[in-house]
């Protein structure tokens, strides 16, 4: 296990706490029916993002590989991607409250991963990774998870706005959320982007797998393909207008939760393989 108070963890702790402050600040403003000053939330998130980037960079130097080797690093990478997307999408599409939701997700998942030391166990590393293509596959796959995370957030925003409109609510958060139409269009774009990135990641992984079957565990392969196929089917159904509105939004939220949960069986299967390979080593 990596030291609970190592330098990179301290940086990531700072990032998570800044995200938490941003979320609490936004929540307080919204509970007062006030639009929070965007500049304050944006500053907190940007500073948090810089700390998180630095923390992951430090971890990368320590492990001499892309830091995606344990659940803690995977969660951190996903939340890092989600924040990066917010910083890109938020201003470009004027998605109000996306920063608030992204900060909440990054704070929640980030703190959870920090508070469970077992998730940050040490793993075998090599100089610049064993195989750069596998590194590419892993990082692109988790980048797509980050997009799925943002998609889950915008879908949740869609559900809240839809609920508010159906229930004739006009106060509080609903009055600051983007419109139903904007959120729906954003969901469609994010899903398309995520599926493209995930397909690329899967393709790279498949090429490696064809080269050497022993490199990939069956559990990981099955779960990864299942998630990819699920999102691909959702995209097709969305494009042909079969899965739309709240059903589509719910599907995106549920699918992301399921995707997160599949990280555990994938990670567990890898741990077993790592243990058995280390036992076989002279």
């Amino acid at each position: 296990m990596y030291s609970f108070i190592s330098e990179e963890r301290a940086l990531i702790w700072t990032a998570a706490l800044l995200y938490l402050v941003a979320f609490v600040f936004g929540f307080y403003s919204l509970s007062q029916s006030k639009r929070y000053p965007r500049i304050i939330l944006l500053t907190l998130v940007i500073v948090g993002f810089l700390f998180q980037t630095l923390g992951l960079y430090e971890r990368g130097l320590k492990t001499s590989t892309c830091p995606l080797g344990n659940p803690f690093e995977i969660i951190q990478f996903i939340t890092w991607t989600a924040i990066l997307l917010y910083l890109v999408i938020g201003p470009a599409f004027r998605m109000s409250l996306l920063g608030f939701f992204s900060a909440g997700l990054a704070a929640g998942l980030g703190l959870l991963s920090l508070l469970i030391p077992e998730w940050d166990r040490a793993y075998e590393t090599g100089p610049f990774g064993i195989n750069p293509w596998i590194e590419t596959h892993a990082s692109m796959a988790l980048f797509s998870y980050g997009i799925f995370a943002t998609l889950a957030l915008t879908s949740a925003m869609y559900l809240v706005q839809n609920y508010g409109l159906k229930q004739k609510r006009s106060k509080g958060m609903v009055s600051f959320l983007p419109s139903i139409l904007q959120l729906d269009q954003m969901n469609k774009r994010l899903l398309f982007m995520a599926v493209v990135v995930f397909t690329f990641a899967i393709s790279v992984g498949m090429v490696q797998w064809v080269d050497d079957f022993s490199q990939i565990q069956n559990t990981k392969l099955i779960f990864a393909l299942a998630i990819w196929l699920s999102y691909l089917i959702v995209l097709i159904l969305r494009v042909i207008n079969y899965l739309i509105g709240i059903k589509f939004a719910w599907t995106c939220v549920v699918l992301f939760t399921a995707s997160l949960l599949t990280l555990w069986p994938i990670d567990a299967s890898r741990s077993i393989v790592e243990e058995s390979s280390s036992q076989q080593r002279p």
Partner: peptide
């Protein structure tokens, strides 16, 4: 004006 606000929440 209430109707306009609602329309904006739906259509942007």
């Amino acid at each position: 004006s209430v109707a306009v606000d609602l329309a904006l929440r739906i259509f942007g």
